[in-house]
């Protein structure tokens, strides 16, 4: 197995311009801050990757993580359900200036679109958003007397995710509510890069405790004592 990256720099080295990137996390919990910052470092040093599409529940908070990506000018589009936060200035400024595109997706539909992609399901039906502005232009169908909207699966070129424990074959566990979108995105992206707070040798994580099996993970990078976005926001940190 050659899944282990020597550094954060190496882990994100292959992400090209215009890539569609899933980034795990819900608010600050489960956000892979170090991977995001490594990508920003690359963009600042080389001008690439530019014009990327980011898929996340939110659209950044404060001035680190996704907010810092947006502020750096490397994000052309956000696909998310709730681009509001305690400090969403980075996204709001670009959005209101027409400098960033937004695809707004109901939260459960966002999760299911990602799950479907990981499971090889191209489309599915849900009652969510039926009859609302977010269903405009989407096919509908009646099943058992109830109306449903057809939604397409959502894939990505890369997923950046944050796990708690990981091993050299890519098995992952998560910490508390930091799990959120991370296991789904690991399944859905063509290439999944996971930062792990604790890197174990294979066999250390009990098979029964594995939440994301290694088949869904391409690259593992060790990041002991990772930053927590909520704490960074409270400290007023900027990246």
């Amino acid at each position: 197995m050659k899944k282990l990256a020597a550094s954060l720099h190496d882990a994100v080295a292959d992400i090209p311009d215009s890539a569609q990137i899933m980034i795990g996390g819900f608010g600050g919990s489960g956000a892979p801050i170090e991977l995001i910052h490594a990508l920003i470092d690359r963009f600042r040093a080389t001008g690439s990757p530019k014009n990327v599409t980011v898929i996340n529940n939110n659209a950044g908070n404060g001035a680190t993580g996704i907010a810092a990506m947006i502020k750096a000018g490397m994000v052309g589009k956000m696909i998310c359900s709730f681009p509001r936060s305690s400090n969403a200035e980075a996204f709001n400024t670009k959005y209101l200036a027409g400098e960033i595109e937004l695809e707004l997706v109901p939260q459960g539909t966002l999760a299911e679109r990602i799950r479907a992609a990981g499971a090889g399901i191209p489309a599915f039906y849900t009652p969510t958003s039926y009859g609302t502005d977010l269903a405009i232009g989407k096919p509908t169908e009646e099943f058992d007397g109830k109306m449903y909207v057809r939604e397409r699966s959502l894939t990505a070129d890369f997923a950046l995710i944050k796990a708690h424990k990981g091993d050299h074959v890519g098995n992952l566990t998560y910490r508390m509510a930091a799990r959120n979108f991370n296991p789904l995105m690991a399944m859905a992206a063509a290439k999944t890069i996971a930062q792990v707070a604790e890197l174990d040798v294979p066999g250390t994580i009990e098979p029964e405790q594995v939440i994301t099996p290694g088949i869904f993970v391409d690259t593992v990078v060790s990041v002991p004592n990772p930053k927590q976005e909520e704490e960074l926001v409270r400290e007023g940190a900027e990246y």
Partner: peptide
């Protein structure tokens, strides 16, 4: 006006 945000409300009302 402003930035739209929907979250899980559309899912909850049908579920």
């Amino acid at each position: 006006k402003g930035v739209p945000a929907v979250g899980g409300a559309m899912d909850l009302v049908h579920g």
